[in-house]
């Protein structure tokens, strides 16, 4: 019989729990609602409509012969996944105080289950909007592995950030409110409603480093490439393609760094969660 000094269950052996929690998130969300999953498409589609009118028609973001709606949607789905994940995970520990005080389990599963359930939404939303992409941007099977791999990196990055926010919020409860404000600003720092090249070609060269230092920019660019293609100012926009090496490299680096730092910090903080929640 083994002698244990620490609680015996690790994250690896908690796959079962993680699966159950993700299932719970999804079930609870869609229980008793007639439209079910379609609700999670309402926001992106509505915003796509609004922004298409405002930016493509009134403000005339130059996209040549491209299509603003699919351009916007390909970036916004990434942003929505990231933002919804972190905004829900930030309260994951504090909100589950009763459970944390009563039962031992690896605390990581709380933020991770929220990220994964948002991942399911992301996948479903991509499937649901795929006819639009195919109609506007054509069928590009070679982009599918890039979408899958990009999604893996995006999930790892988001999970790391979500763990940091969830852990910090235990000692600093204002973070929950602050996060919404931060993400509002962060959204405009991310090339979702404007193509990245417009920043480079604008008069505001000083802004370029800021936008490039934003990790979400790179993930958005990855999905722009794989789902939309290359936005250009004049002429036809090149169709979806395999993202370039720099994008892969930067995204991988951010994913690994965020996941590693997030896990280490979260584990350290998690020891005393039961005392502080």
């Amino acid at each position: 019989m083994a002698v244990r000094t620490t609680p015996p269950r690790t994250l690896l052996s908690s796959g079962e729990l993680l699966r159950n929690l993700v299932a719970k998130e999804l079930k609870v969300r869609y229980k008793g609602s007639a439209l079910g999953f379609l609700w999670s498409l309402v926001t992106p589609l509505l915003l796509t409509g609004v922004f298409t009118v405002v930016f493509a028609t009134f403000l005339r973001i130059p996209l040549g012969e491209g299509n603003f709606a699919t351009f916007f949607l390909s970036g916004y789905l990434v942003w929505q996944f990231f933002s919804n994940s972190v905004n829900s995970a930030v309260g994951a520990i504090v909100g589950n105080g009763a459970l944390i005080k009563k039962v031992w389990f690896p605390r990581e599963v709380l933020p991770l289950s929220l990220v994964l359930s948002q991942g399911v939404h992301f996948g479903l939303a991509l499937l649901a909007t795929s006819p639009l992409f195919i109609w506007q941007r054509g069928v590009h099977l070679e982009a599918i592995p890039a979408i899958l791999l990009g999604f893996l990196l995006l999930t790892a990055f988001t999970a790391g950030v979500a763990m940091v926010f969830a852990g910090l919020n235990v000692g600093f409860r204002d973070l929950q409110e602050l996060t919404q404000v931060i993400f509002l600003a962060w959204f405009y720092l991310t090339p979702v409603i404007y193509p990245l090249y417009t920043v480079r070609e604008s008069g505001a060269q000083w802004a370029v480093p800021f936008v490039l230092a934003n990790p979400v920019t790179w993930f958005v660019e990855l999905f722009h490439a794989a789902l939309y293609g290359t936005p250009v100012a004049v002429g036809p926009n090149p169709p979806p393609h395999w993202p370039d090496a720099t994008t892969w490299l930067v995204c991988s680096a951010w994913a690994v760094a965020a996941l590693a730092v997030g896990t280490v910090l979260f584990r350290r903080w998690a020891r005393t969660f039961a005392k502080e929640v």
Binding site: L17, K24, A98
Partner: peptide, 26 residues
């Protein structure tokens, strides 16, 4: 320690049994 900690009110008894079991390590 506390019974039904981790139950979700919107889930059925059956769903909660599986969820709670997983929380307890089953």
């Amino acid at each position: 320690l506390e019974l039904g900690a981790g139950f979700h009110p919107d889930l059925t008894g059956r769903e909660n049994v599986y969820l709670n079991g997983a929380i307890l390590g089953l």
